[in-house]
Amino acid sequence: MTKVKTLADLKKLKDKLQEKVKLREKGLDAENHVQIKVAMATCGIASGAKVIMEFLIEELDKRNIEAVVTQTGCMGYCFAEPTIEVTLPGQTPVVFGYVDVRKADEIIEKYIKNGELVDGIIPQNYETIDNN
């Protein structure tokens, strides 16, 4: 058997992180976080939402942006999946559609870092057409 990571290794990592977390907690303010929700219903998952979520978690950490990335259900924009909802501190949420890795990168660099709007926003007043 080759060497595999165990819970004991996790303990070591935890002890290492503990120090960093202590430093961070001082400046930690929930309202200063960027919040991102990735739509993860059948439509989202089938269109690649998992990869987008992993990309966001990884890249936001690498680029030192304090953000919370969570999952949400289908927002009714199945045609535009993967969709993500981004809430900058103190601002109204913005929903982006057709988010691939390139788009996600653009959203981080332009919208999250500079507040600059990018293509692919689903207008808030958009409503699903109901034929009944």
Partner: peptide
């Protein structure tokens, strides 16, 4: 078991996530 080890560190911490994913991958490969 994971929660017991990481205690007050969030399981959503990207370092923890990376570790967990690799741990599962390695164990599955085994």
């Amino acid at each position: 078991k994971i929660m017991k080890v990481i205690e007050n560190i969030s399981i959503a911490d990207p370092n923890i996530l990376r570790f967990i994913r690799e741990m599962i991958q390695e164990n599955l490969r085994n």
